[in-house]
Simulated scan of single mutants.
Amino acid sequence: MKFDTKIAVLVRDDLETWQRLNVTAFVVSGIAASQPQVIGEPYEDADGTTYLSLLGQPVVVLEADAATLKAAHTRALSRELPMSIYTGEMFTTGHDEANRSVVRAVPRDDLDLVGIAVFGPRNGVDRSVKGARLHP
């Protein structure tokens, strides 16, 4: 099945494995929270046990260096695509309010971006993340 929209996660290539996984989980949650149409139906196993709904479309996870990540951020903003971000400073906090505070303290062009998730029309998302490569 081909979707008209795309979800792309872009993580910086110099992060530790645990950081990449953490960033991916957080930025995808931003897309899921703001785009209810991407959520599928709840799951149920053969015994009738129910499980939470997941995203109803694939997510591509990419990696790039800091410059490519910054360029993708700029391109996604220029296309007005819904985007969630994760900055390096957020690794030093312990809760959502503190995360928002460290982001709020830094001008957009100076953000130490370590990950973003972008949602929107396939072409717009593809153009935004141009230069990134599939995460290994």
Rank of each mutant, 00 (worst) to 15 (best):
I7G: 00
A8S: 10
V9L: 03
L10M: 09
V11C: 01
R12I: 03
D14N: 09
D14E: 06
L15A: 02
L15V: 03
T17P: 07
W18V: 08
W18K: 07
W18F: 11
V23T: 07
T24M: 07
T24A: 12
V28A: 07
V28M: 08
S29H: 14
G30W: 07
A32C: 09
A33S: 11
A33E: 09
P36A: 13
P36D: 09
Q37V: 14
Q37K: 14
V38F: 10
V38T: 13
I39P: 11
I39Q: 09
G40E: 09
E41R: 10
E41K: 12
Y43D: 12
E44T: 14
E44H: 02
E44F: 01
D45Q: 10
D45S: 10
D45T: 07
A46E: 11
D47M: 12
G48H: 05
T49D: 08
T50L: 03
Y51T: 05
Y51M: 06
L52G: 15
L52N: 14
S53A: 15
L54W: 10
L55G: 08
Q57T: 11
Q57M: 15
Q57K: 13
P58L: 02
P58A: 09
V59H: 08
V60T: 11
V60R: 03
V61N: 00
L62V: 04
L62G: 02
L62R: 10
A64G: 12
A64F: 01
A64E: 01
D65A: 08
A66T: 12
A67P: 00
A67W: 00
A67V: 07
A71V: 06
T74A: 11
R75Q: 13
L77K: 15
L77A: 14
L77M: 12
L77P: 03
R79P: 04
R79F: 14
E80D: 12
L81Q: 06
P82T: 09
P82W: 06
M83F: 04
I85P: 05
T87Q: 10
G88C: 02
G88W: 08
G88L: 13
E89G: 15
F91V: 06
F91P: 06
T92K: 14
T92G: 11
T92C: 10
T93C: 13
G94K: 12
H95L: 04
H95K: 10
D96T: 15
E97P: 00
N99E: 15
N99R: 13
N99M: 12
R100Y: 13
R100P: 00
S101Y: 08
V103E: 12
V103Y: 13
R104Q: 15
A105S: 14
A105F: 09
V106I: 15
R108V: 11
R108C: 01
R108Q: 10
R108G: 00
R108L: 12
D109S: 12
D109W: 08
D110S: 14
L111A: 07
L111F: 10
L113N: 03
L113T: 04
V114C: 07
V114Y: 05
I116M: 04
A117P: 02
V118N: 05
V118C: 06
V118M: 05
G120W: 08
G120M: 09
P121M: 04
R122C: 09
N123Y: 01
S128V: 06
S128Q: 07
V129F: 05
R133H: 13
R133W: 02
